[in-house]
């Protein structure tokens, strides 16, 4: 009986400790800052609201930084 309590206590404490390993939410929460609104980078020309085109353009440049892929 005593062993069960110890095991339950151990499991509980381990679970509590492991909560520290979780990642803090990094969701965008507009309205907290007093800064003026900043339109997203794809809002204006040359992308004019086309988010997927902007992401594709930036992604191409990001992957182009890997010369192992670029050269071979």
């Amino acid at each position: 009986m005593c062993n069960r309590k110890i095991v339950a206590l151990f499991c509980g404490l381990t679970g509590l400790l492991l909560t520290a390993c979780t990642e803090k939410p990094q969701t965008y929460t507009p309205g907290v800052s007093t800064a003026a609104s900043d339109p997203p980078p794809y809002a204006t020309p040359p992308f004019a609201g086309n988010r997927s085109a902007w992401e594709a353009a930036v992604s191409t440049r990001m992957k182009g930084q890997n010369e192992y892929v670029r050269v071979q």
């Binding site: 990094q26 965008y28 507009p30 907290v32 800052s33 007093t34 800064a35 003026a36 900043d38 997203p40 980078p41």
Partner: peptide, 19 residues
């Protein structure tokens, strides 16, 4: 103190110089 910093959708930390 003026909360002029903000985070964009891309995770960038920027600030408003007017604030």
């Amino acid at each position: 103190p003026t909360n002029c910093f903000y985070r964009t959708e891309e995770g960038l930390v920027l600030h408003d110089k007017d604030k």
